[in-house]
């Protein structure tokens, strides 16, 4: 469960390549096949698409950025020895937390903060934060005890052990958590419109309500492309940012 639903495995880099190739191929095929149709959509909605895409990207970047910013230190803090007594309980809480559907989280954030951009960011932030904290915590806890013992036995200070031994060796699991969390975030971001947070959800939900297929697709296509782009970027990051010695994706 810790590696999440999008958990990366050895075939991952091939997957990302496939996503990219299929994405481009699909886009190209669609462009050719429906040039007139998509062209019409673009003519009608280009201004909305550009404006809402920007808004959408801001929603995703701000909420997931804040989630990483808070989730990393929180996960590190929970994994320290002095928290050991509470960590099991907290882990249970996080497990339950990640089970809660994202729509429910957004709905609950309305009751706290009302309608608008802020509650949308808050809801997305909560939905993204929990898997990050959980994976950072688990990644650090799974670092073999003998590595920490060897480090301590050689005279490393606790901070040095965290920086040079624990974090690098937990990085893969931590990154997998961030990737899962961002995927959840990107998947939930269209719902932000429902609570007044704007974004591409506006075109999708309004399109559904008005039974306007062009408007619907004007939202669906950028959302789909954004999600693929996000996953692709993170997969690349996972491949290149994690040192070779602890990256199962790299030989």
């Amino acid at each position: 469960m810790s590696r999440g639903i999008l958990g990366a495995d050895a075939s991952d880099s091939m997957k990302t390549r496939a996503v990219f190739v299929i994405g481009i191929a699909l886009g190209a095929a669609l462009t050719v096949a429906t040039q007139g149709y998509l062209g019409d959509i673009w003519r009608i909605y280009s201004e909305d698409i550009i404006y809402l895409t920007k808004q959408h990207i801001v929603l995703v970047l701000v909420s997931s950025g804040l989630a990483i910013l808070v989730g990393l230190p929180a996960g590190i803090l929970l994994s320290r020895d002095f928290m050991r007594r509470y960590s099991e309980t907290l882990l249970q809480v996080f497990n339950i937390g990640t089970t809660i559907p994202t729509l429910a989280i957004l709905a609950l954030s309305i009751t706290l903060l009302g309608i608008g951009f802020k509650p949308a960011i808050f809801g997305l932030w909560v939905a993204t934060l929990l898997p990050i904290v959980r994976n950072v915590f688990q990644g650090l806890r799974e670092v073999p005890a003998h590595l920490k013992e060897a480090a301590q036995g050689m005279g490393m200070t606790p901070l040095h052990i965290l920086r040079s031994v624990e974090l690098p060796n937990a990085l893969y699991v931590m990154f997998a958590g961030i990737r899962t969390a961002v995927a959840v975030n990107v998947g939930t971001a269209p719902l932000a419109f429902l609570i007044g947070g704007g974004g591409l959800g506006e075109l999708i939900f309004t399109g559904i309500d008005l039974n306007d297929m062009q408007m619907l697709l004007a939202g669906v296509i950028p959302v789909g492309l954004l999600s693929m782009l996000a996953d692709y970027t993170l997969a690349k990051g996972q491949f290149w940012l994690i040192p070779r010695g602890v990256n199962p994706l790299r030989p």
Binding site: L6, I204, G219, G224, S227
Partner: peptide, 8 residues
């Protein structure tokens, strides 16, 4: 498939 947002 699983990376596609549900509403999309």
């Amino acid at each position: 498939i699983i990376t596609i947002p549900s509403i999309a």
